[in-house]
């Protein structure tokens, strides 16, 4: 058994950017090991196109995976992993990676490094680096058991363009055996629809937005003009300016976009824990001593109600 299997994430017939990231990283690791990369696809998606991102073969489990089901995910992934013969499995750190994947880890008697922000090889073993204590410390998890399983935070690796190559696709049969629950209803997010966990750009507002109406106007308006996700501090969600699902921080979502604009957010450790890995952080705050400026790549000390509309206008003017 050898090789690296990447579970491809897809929705609406296209693969998510995190899958491109993972295939790129897997290709680099496979080159060091002298092995190959394959991809796993659960359900209906253009599997062969993953060849353009480094998969030499794709293993596809048939079925309807559009409504998430714990049992189907575990059983199909187990079958695909066995068919691929891979001894390393990389997945995005999604709800399924927290809900279903640990079941597979227990079933196979192995170990998993979860929510990694870096992967490397040491002595041929997969090592994942991950945060703990709300991002105040990091550690390496060396995976000795086989298969080595790691879930990775979106935005951790660069995304390559497709070479246009296609990969052969092998259908994998699977049987439902895991005890599961029945989905009665799926409730659509009350949010903007841009997935915060994988967004390239995020605009976040704090308590200083003063009201839900002003939050909508200043933060949501700006975000929709540049296709960014909307985030909020805990103080802002507690005040009802934004939805609970939009809260970024230790007890909310963890994000690491290319650009994170924090308006009227002081930078409590609780919030920093959720966004400190962002590539570029912009802070807009009236208080020059606000802790957020310690983390900011660029900061503007000023009234957010003046600065944010001006910035929105200037970004629009860039074209």
């Amino acid at each position: 058994m050898s090789g690296i299997l990447v579970l491809a994430e897809h929705a609406g017939g296209s693969f998510k950017p995190v899958t491109v990231e993972l295939l790129g990283k897997a290709s680099a690791l496979a080159a060091q090991l002298g092995t190959t990369v394959s991809a796993a696809v659960l359900g209906d998606a253009p599997a062969a196109t993953l060849g353009g991102f480094g998969a030499s073969k794709v293993f596809q489990a048939a079925g309807d995976f559009s409504t998430y089901d714990t049992g189907a995910y575990v059983d199909a992934l187990q079958a695909v992993l066995a068919a691929s013969g891979a001894d390393m499995l990389l997945v995005a750190h999604t709800y399924a990676a927290r809900d279903a994947l640990p079941r597979l880890v227990a079933r196979l008697g192995t170990a998993m490094a979860s929510d990694c922000n870096e992967l490397k090889l040491v002595g041929g073993k997969l090592v994942g680096r991950r945060g703990m204590f709300a991002g105040r410390a990091e550690a390496d998890i060396t995976l000795a058991a086989s298969p080595a399983i790691a879930s990775v935070r979106a935005g951790s690796f660069p995304k390559a363009e497709s070479t246009g190559a296609t990969a052969p696709v092998e259908a994998v049969a699977w049987t439902a055996t895991t005890p599961t629950v029945k989905v009665l209803e799926t409730l659509a997010p009350k949010t903007t629809g841009v997935d915060l966990g994988t967004a390239d750009k995020v605009i976040a507002g704090g308590r200083s937005l003063k009201s839900k109406e002003l939050f909508d106007e200043v933060i949501r308006g700006f975000a929709s003009s540049i296709g960014a996700g909307v985030a909020a501090s805990r103080a802002a969600t507690d005040a009802g300016y934004a939805d609970h699902a939009e809260q970024v921080g230790q007890t909310g979502q963890i994000v690491n976009p290319q650009l994170y604009i924090a308006a009227g957010i002081s930078g409590a450790i609780q919030h920093i824990a959720g966004m400190r890995a962002s590539k570029v952080i912009v802070a807009v705050n009236k208080d020059a001593d606000a802790p957020i400026f310690e983390y900011a790549t660029y900061g503007i000390v000023g009234d957010l109600f003046e600065v944010m509309p001006a910035l929105q206008k200037e970004i629009a003017a860039l074209g």
Binding site: G109, G131, R136, E138, A139, I141, L143, A144, Y295
Partner: peptide, 28 residues
């Protein structure tokens, strides 16, 4: 036996940032 933890460290420090001065329109 299955996994080991090591190389504990604080998260990487962020590079020093920059405050952009000026009135809101100029700074923006």
């Amino acid at each position: 036996a299955r996994s080991t933890m090591g190389a504990f460290a604080p998260p990487p420090a962020r590079p020093a940032g920059r405050i952009i001065a000026g009135d809101p329109a100029t700074a923006a």
